[in-house]
Write a protein that binds this DNA or RNA. Structure first.
Lengths: 190, 190, 190, 190
DNA sequence: CATGAATGAGGGTTCATTCAT
DNA sequence: TATGAATGAACCCTCATTCAT
């Protein structure tokens, strides 16, 4: 196993264990063992357990952001673009259930320093922020306070992924898919 | 301090510390100390730290449910009744910020056994479930799958309280208050 | 329940629990509970857990000594008298299995202060000491060092009771009964 | 100090402390400290205090068995062979007083799981079992039930070692030595 | 860079004992 | 005398982290 493979194995294992047992209930020794490396090796790649958590969080956030950005559609039709974004985002969650659960659990947990969590949330929500501002300009979206709308979007997204992760086959059903987007869109529309 | 006072002091202190530091980062010794009792006393009232957590969770859930139930309005106008419920629920969150934050942090955390969390969520969401079914019968609400709508309601509620706890004076502002309800209602309405 | 009843209930319960779980693994709270009294009550009757143990040990030793003394036969035939003593002693062990096991466990354990244990052993072995001296005078018993013979007697007694407590119906069998005594007597005889 | 040295130091220290203070009265911290290692180190070598006790018990039992086996004499003269065995066994006890006391204290104590104790006793007593059967075949030994005889042998051995450990110089005295064996042998002989 | 034995502070929990009622 | 809640020292054990190999 190469250097980077080991680092990646540690991140993957940490993800699995943090999600299933929680951060504090997962020992660094168990991460190393399950990743197939020695205890000490973990500390060559991450200066501390907290640092491992932080890198894991930021890595996953970046993966998500990259996945979304890579597929953004900009056809000029706001509703269509938003629907596309909604589908891409939920597709990602369903394709990466562990990572999505990780967000559900840790995006408001004190196991990750507040500053890091908030910066990450801002980065991600800025996507939506721009779409919302644009929609408000054209009158398609309601003129509510921006950060309230962002928070609401985030909440709807978490709710929808919670639902579809619990009922994965429902995401194949057009009615459910459409319903989830309708709720999201109608909440914001003018 | 009487027997029940001590138990209550322990619950209150645990709430504060669990929210600010997290469950695992809070030692039973620190809870006892800050509650003004001896270490051993905690274990007279709660057989373990996990049991304390569980009781705290269930107590707060019950308090919330009782507060809502006590003020339910049933005037026959669904939208008005729902708006009233929305306000009562957010009022409670703002009046009990620690307890609300506690829910934000722990309602998806492995620090509380899954069965307990889910039972509590079901109890609370059954409120909304009934309102939704009623609205679907009269045609006022959209005919989306019930549990998807419940999850969405829950998500919107968490998002709104997150926003208003971060900006407490905004809840005094009619525009914000109205906006938050509009998003909630429009998401569901037919 | 009267005062003495409670004290006796505590001693009885302590006996049962000390034998089945060991001294340190038995909490004073569990003794009190199973005896049907409050925690504090134990400390009205015994100044400490160690004191309870000491009184239990001395009480049982006295019961044993009294039972033996009450049935001593002094017919002038040393072997017959000794056989009678042997049978009485083993009868007592079989009639009081918990107390016998208590001795097996605690007569060499640091849970009871050395001085107390040794005094008790001396008291009990002095029975045998007299019989042995008498037999040596008449030439019926071998002229081995007295305390070595006493220790051997004690060892044989513990071994025999261990055997018959493990196989209680064997004590009804004449052959086994006779065999156990033969080993005891032949070891000492001239 | 090497890895195995540390494990051995822990076993040695545990032996000393368990014998002098008892199992429960000896803290793992005190064992580690007196062995010259850190608290945690004890738990690298033994998964729990109970496991340490178990390994200690089995190790000592094995040492005893090995010491005896290494010196067994098989000259065909049963009495001579048995006398040799008796001397070797008591020599071992006198050369290893702590280990012998450990057996006296713990071979009937609930501090060691019953299954382990019994297995160990069976292993050790099987020596004697074979000798006895052989003697019964040739008519040199009495035809008593085997397990009763084994129990008796064990009892005599414990009694003799108790005596000689309390009076160590007596083991140099031919008369005492001979007396102890005579009692042992006469108990069993036909 | 990789290893895993060693560390020791700190955690949850127990329990003999006390004392106000 | 009887009670049982309260006490807090002491216990067993865990674990993030270090470092000699």
């Amino acid at each position: 196993m190469s250097r980077l493979d080991k680092k990646q194995a540690l991140l993957n294992t940490a993800l699995t264990l943090f999600v299933s047992q929680g951060f504090h209930a997962t020992s660094t020794a168990s991460i190393a063992k399950q990743a197939g490396v020695a205890t000490g090796t973990l500390f060559h790649h991450f200066s501390s357990k907290d640092e491992l958590m932080k890198q894991l969080f930021l890595t996953i956030k970046q993966e998500f952001a990259d996945a979304i950005k890579a597929q953004l559609s900009q056809q000029g039709d706001l509703k269509a673009d938003t629907k596309h974004l909604w589908q891409v985002a939920i597709d990602w969650a369903i394709a990466n259930p562990l990572k999505q659960e990780f967000f559900q659990q840790y995006s408001m947990s004190p196991s990750i320093p507040t500053a890091i969590r908030q910066q990450a949330m801002n980065d991600i929500l800025s996507f939506m922020g721009e779409l919302i501002l644009q929609g408000q300009k054209t009158g398609e979206l309601a003129d509510y306070p921006l950060s309230l709308m962002q928070e609401s979007c985030h909440g709807q997204y978490l709710a929808a992924t919670r639902y579809f992760l619990d009922h994965p086959d429902m995401w194949q059903d057009e009615a459910h898919k459409q319903a989830s987007f309708s709720m999201f869109w109608n909440a914001m529309k003018a």
